[in-house]
């Protein structure tokens, strides 16, 4: 009670004192300065967003022009890469990011000559180095992006770099690495992705299954290797794929797993 009375007394003293007006003016000035600083920062942020948007619009046109050169096959791809490196915008990461994004989008649709030209451009222009820097970053989000760029552009020479991330502490990076390893090497990646002892959630399992279903050589996988894995997640992937492709040769193995499933919660869920 005494403490509150003391505070009340002090406040009353300040209000009734001659310096009260002075103090109020100082407080108002400080508030105005704070509002001004916040407004300037806000305007700067808005203008940088607008600048980035404008830059994006300009860059989109330039990126399109490079893609045209790649797709029309009239200029040697090495020359397109040289022109790109020598362009005044090359030093801007935003420009290179946009180019990589468009390369990947286009690459996704294609097979054959133009696909090969896109890949050669990705390597010759040095955009591959940006993906490598992302992969080596400490930010898991960038790491995933780098891994994805490598696998989308079929950069098989970076397979070992992705391999080193399959035991990463971040589950998203681990999943992205496993998916990319399978995408890059198909069934030959199996030995590299099956020997893990961490838990895999059903979402990750579903992602791996969908990816393997789309691989060109998916039906000649040796599914016994999956069914005999120590990891239940790998077993589930094997079971799901065998059921999806209706592979009759694995019936005995599936029945054995079914009878053993009482010992595993994850396998029980599968049956």
């Amino acid at each position: 009670m005494n403490f509150i009375q003391v505070i009340k007394g002090e406040v009353m003293n300040i209000i009734t004192s001659e310096r009260f007006e002075e103090l109020m003016i100082i407080v108002i000035i400080i508030l105005l300065i704070a509002i001004l600083i916040v407004s300037i920062l806000y305007l700067l942020k808005i203008s940088s967003i607008i600048d980035e948007g404008k830059k994006n619009d300009i860059y989109e046109g330039i990126v399109d022009a490079y893609l045209n050169d790649i797709e029309t096959c009239t200029i040697k791809i090495e020359q397109v890469a040289i022109n790109f490196i020598e362009s005044p915008h090359f030093r801007d990461p935003l420009f290179r990011e946009l180019m990589t994004k468009e390369l990947i989008n286009t690459h996704h649709y294609l097979t054959g000559l133009i696909k090969n030209r896109l890949q050669t451009f990705y390597f010759s222009s040095g955009l591959v180095n940006d993906s490598y820097l992302k992969l080596k970053s400490n930010d898991w989000h960038l790491q995933c992006k780098g891994i994805n760029e490598f696998s989308e552009m079929d950069a098989i020479s970076y397979y070992d770099d992705i391999l080193s991330l399959r035991f990463n502490k971040n589950s998203q990076v681990r999943l992205q690495a496993v998916l990319s390893l399978i995408k890059l090497k198909g069934k030959n990646a199996y030995k590299d992705v099956s020997n893990f002892d961490y838990n895999v959630n059903r979402w990750a399992i579903a992602n791996v299954i969908e990816l393997i279903k789309d691989l060109p050589d998916n039906q000649i996988f040796d599914y016994n290797l999956m069914l005999n894995s120590n990891n239940d997640a790998v077993k589930i992937i094997g079971i799901s794929l065998i059921e999806h492709f209706k592979l009759k040769t694995y019936e005995d193995e599936l029945n054995t797993l079914k009878s053993d499933s009482v010992s595993s919660t994850m396998l029980k869920l599968q049956y």
């Binding site: 399109d64 893609l67 045209n68 797709e71 029309t72 096959c73 286009t106 649709y109 294609l110």
Partner: peptide
């Protein structure tokens, strides 16, 4: 739009 761009570029070339 991506397919349009790819095919149109190839046809024009």
């Amino acid at each position: 739009k991506m397919i349009i761009k790819i095919i149109a570029n190839c046809l024009l070339s």
